[in-house]
Amino acid sequence: MARLKPFFPKSHGKSRVDDRRLLSGIIFINRNGLRWRDAPKAYGPHKTLYSRWKRWSEKGVSARMMRGLAAEHRERKTVMIDASYLKAHRTATSMAEKGGRGRLIGRTKGGMNTKLHAICDSQGRPIDLFVTAGQVSDYNGARALLCSLPKVGWLLGDRGYDADWFREALQDKGIRACIPGRKQRKTPVRYDKRRYKRRNRIEIMFGRLKDWRRVATRYDRCPEVFLSAIALAATVIYWL
């Protein structure tokens, strides 16, 4: 809690309920995929848990925690980029015609889902996250995460990121790309196959994040709340 305290909003006026107890309850709900009304009484009223979680998500507290703790461990060698699908529950996809256009939920062969784009360091710890609708190309996620790349020597990615503009943008930043070329390329692209084998660490990272039920299955209609749940899981698993 001492490490997380600088990222909490400052209280104004009357002192608020204990942050430690509420944060423990929020973690319990997100990890087990429970409804807020099913929270154990030890964490206090479920309405207080939900209102605090909603308010923190709107302010981006969880994402600020993850980025702040990740900045303390500056990566200088290698980063990895990849994307993964997260299934959307019917509670998140309902009423799509009235207000679901901005929920970042799309339809693919696997059904309704959201795509999580992530950048992690050489040890497989997430540095930055970005969510889009499921049918969105990996290029859009790469374009959004490009500005947040740290100053490193290498970037590892799969064939989904083989684009000339992306390679040129990495070169302008002084980053060498270790990305295999697409099969449609007339001239094959050379890459470090030995270094590319380390990319499995970001796949392991996605698997560990999906151990949290409210990450593997999206129940929240608001994309900011869902992204906060992912950032909270990443913070607890990797940065605390």
Results as ranks from 00 to 15, higher is better:
C178H: 05
R213T: 03
D38N: 09
A233P: 09
C222A: 15
N30R: 15
L232E: 07
G44W: 00
T48I: 08
R198Q: 13
D121A: 07
L227W: 10
A88F: 03
L49E: 07
I202W: 06
V79K: 10
I127E: 10
G134A: 02
G60R: 03
I179W: 10
R21C: 13
A229V: 15
K54M: 15
S57V: 08
K47M: 12
T91V: 13
D128N: 13
V189S: 08
V215Q: 07
Q184T: 14
D172N: 11
M1D: 15
R208G: 01
V215R: 00
G124A: 02
D138C: 05
D138A: 08
V215N: 03
R201N: 01
L227Y: 11
A233S: 11
H117C: 07
S57Q: 01
R208W: 13
I105D: 01
H46R: 08
P45M: 04
A231L: 06
N200F: 10
W239R: 06
S51C: 14
P223M: 04
A96S: 12
T48Y: 10
A71N: 11
P45L: 09
I81N: 00
K173P: 09
Y139K: 14
Y238G: 05
S137H: 08
V61Q: 05
Y43G: 11
P126I: 04
V215H: 11
K87Q: 05
E224P: 05
R16S: 15
R199N: 00
M80E: 05
R159I: 08
T114W: 00
A216E: 01
K173H: 06
N140T: 14
D164L: 12
D38T: 06
P126L: 00
A216R: 11
A42S: 15
I127S: 09
